[in-house]
Nucleic acid binder design. Sequence first.
RNA 1: GCGGGGGUACCCGAGCAUGGCCAAAGGGGCAAGGCUUAGGACCUUGUGACAUAGGUCUCCGAGGGUUCAAAUCCCUCCCCCCGCACCA
Length: 950
Amino acid sequence: MKDYDPVEIEKKWQERWEEEGVDRAEVDESREPFYLIFAYPGVSGFLHLGHMRCYSYTDIIARYKRMEGYNVLFPTGTHPTGNQAYSLSKHLQEGVPEKIDYMKRNGATEEDIERVKDPMELVTYFNEVYIDKYWKKFGISIDFDYFTYSTREDYKQFIKWQFRKLKERGLLTQKDYFGTECIECGPVAVDPSETDLSKGGTAEKQEYTLLKFEYNGRYITAATLRPETVFGQTNLWVDPEEGYVVAEVEGEEWILSKEAVEKLKYQKDDVKVIDTIMGEDMIGDYVKAPVIHRDIIILPASFTDPDVGTGIVTSVPSDAPYDWIALRDLKQDEDTLKRFGLEGKIEDVEPIPIIESKDWGINPAEKIIHEMDIQSQRDDDKLETATQKIYKSGFHTGKMLDSCQDYSGMSVQKAKEMVKEDMIASGEADIMYDLSEEVVCRCGAKVVVGKIPDQWFIRYSDEELTEKSKKHATDMEIKPQSYADNITETIGWFQDRSCARKGNWMGTEFPFDEEWVIEAIADSTLYPAYYILAKHYNDGIIEAENMTEDFFDHVYLGKGNIEDVSKKTGLSKETIEDIRSDFKYWYPLDLNLGGKEHMTVHFPPFLMNHVGILDEEYWPKGIFVNWWLVGKGGKISKSKGGAEPIPDTAEKYGVDTLRLFYAHSASPFVDKEWDEDEVFNYRKKLNSIWNKVHRMKETDGGKNPVDEYLRSRFYSLVMKGNEYMQDHELRKAASVVYYDIPSEIDWYFKRGGCNGELMDEIAKGMLKLMVPFTPHIAEELSDMWNIEYLVKSGLPKIPEDGISKKAELEEEYIKEVRADIKQILDIADVEGEKIHIYTAAGWKEKAVGMIIQQPEKGMGVMGELTKKLDAPAKQLSKFVQHILKDLREKGAKDSWSIDMNEYEVLKGAAAFLEEEFQAQIKIYPPDGSSYDPTNKSSQAIPRKPAIYVE
RNA sequence: GCGGGGGUACCCGAGCAUGGCCAAAGGGGCAAGGCUUAGGACCUUGUGACAUAGGUCUCCGAGGGUUCAAAUCCCUCCCCCCGCACCA
């Protein structure tokens, strides 16, 4: 026997499979199609072991479906859209050392690095790397004839068509958008993964309502997150030490902090600083407050921050703890009052109750300050907490009081929106966006919230689209269940989504406005429909210029007269019909697999774009979400480095080992920590299977009583494994194949099984079950039986006589007897040289037979039993009780109804038990105990013989 | 805040929907023995407590409840994790 050498085997079979074309997908009307994809990767660097988790799952399902007899289409592509490929290329141009090192570490040569300084070359380079060093090397059974990528001309044609359709259906719109952007590089994503950032991933974009206070023909502006509290305004807070500016904003003059005006420049069209003004110069003056139209006084405070809002705060002492305490402090601070000439001016500045909430009643600020014992306006942490508490309670349970004009009686939640909108409409307020903490771009520049005028949006808020998508989602097969429960919710809150960008981005030009480039999420929704066409492009049958609107309309929507379409596209009728029928054959997509990061990013628009554009019969049928593979410190990510290069790991352990690790070491629906020791255990597992299959091959004995048991157990497990695979329960299925079945084979050998024919049957069956998970080793081992291409052979068929409940029951019985004997030997202080096994008295077996006829009668059968059986009355009643209890508690009726001759079964296993316990075994038939010194035999009950050891 | 998912033995992890062969699968780790002693190898056994006959007791985040019977159903509480968008 040769040792298991995965590297050699894997290379050999990958080459042979390619020659044989086992991954090829051709239309075959006689077979049921199954179409699946994984979410194609963005081109941003080398793939990591987390990607391979998803690809392995996809391949396992693809191979299983092939074994099941489906005609499987499994294509892939790549997604260079966006700026990731671009920025890597740029970094290499600039010679960033980490990036160069990163490339080299992953096997790029000097020439490669030189070449990929051109972004388009970088895309080509990575396309090759992904295909040759990752997918092919991992034995992922993709048909690369369908390969495409999102910056190729043909793909772009497809995307343009898609956007024309969206527009046609009223699903595109244009409006201003406020998004996060780096002041140097343009739009960036602010999210915890910090893909684009060097700092501030947890920041939130906040929308402030900017209140305008009339002041000498200008407006003092104050930002608030709680517009509904304007009714409780009593004064303004200004920092006397702070230098504010006067800025011209869209024709008005606003007073605000320097920091605020810098931010506003990105959000308003005409912002110009024209003057400065010190805080102290405003103290004591009066301004006209919005909505309430009362004159309120400007007072000094120290808690304001020029970098938060406008650096000027409107004071609502009833509901804002900061305001309440600042006001109290000021009233007691005679020096300050004197300094600003405020004596006698602020006595009547008092909190005005505006909101009543469940937990805090009215005037919550005062209450919470006493409760939390807050001493001063500098007690930041406590004040922050207090503010949060009041806000939470107020937002959910609060009601506006009578002091709130038309909004009285309204819930805070509702009033908040309405007050804001009304104030903006009347010109008393505006909107200002800010980030909750400092955010810095990867390039080192500041990230701000900026206005993008006339941004294009896909209208995912569209009611009809939302409803249709939600409904369809409930009919889809979505794994895991938690996401199936969730996705309709997600679709529900999905708002309009910007779909194009300006700047140096790779992607498709927006068809109605060439300045814009369609962004990465928007051009990766309908693409599974395009792979089918990409093959024809790859085959040279169609060119990008043939792909006109009429062409796609006909292929995807069946629109238009074929003669016309042929004329307009310059393609023959046959070609067009051919492509159309390919699409009709393969579509809809059966399964789309992707990581959990896609749950709120890719899958909803993927589904909604299908619903929005294609006919219902082509809407996708399934989604499978896998969680991440994480390193010790968190997610393994492309951008932040990560684990060692995959090709090296694959050589070290073999890809079958890695695939088995993915399939079995954890449920797909949890994050899994990468652990090399664990991987090594799977390598050992495959070694042991290798050895076991060789042993099975060498076994050439004759029939044996245990044969029927093993055969039955095997086919029972095959059925179980199939059920798991139907549900995409990959881990459970792998457990059956790699653990349950081998351990039954071990038991078989242990029991002395040696049937060569049966071993052939089971080994071949087991290898077929292994194909989806570890195809290379399975194929190699199957060579011993001269099977030509095991991966094409189909699943093991379950013979009609394959499963015998009786055989399984009998063997279970022996296992139990063995366990009982072992337990007795463990605890009893006996030699254990002789073991006597007494089967139950004949009348007991008969009694059981009668009881299970009518177990519902309970003890009612006693009379009948006494009459019919020759049994000791006392024992009988005790026994009947026992059996009834057993039936009731364990629901054992099924197994009782199978006939079993215990005496014969035990005799058959006697040699085995003697060997096991190195003891003499003596078995007695019912009522046939010739030697029984302790009267053990009376304790025997059917299915549980009495045992006496000496 | 909104929405979702969890807490099971040394660890990971099944079971929980349909309560009862559940002291609780499987794997890992650890221990003992065997076998080899060049490979992180392989095989057996053990791994809640007690028990000189197959038994008993305790146990599935905490506390209550329903039931003949609860890891499983109901209630309360505590704790942990994840997603919330222009990031592929």
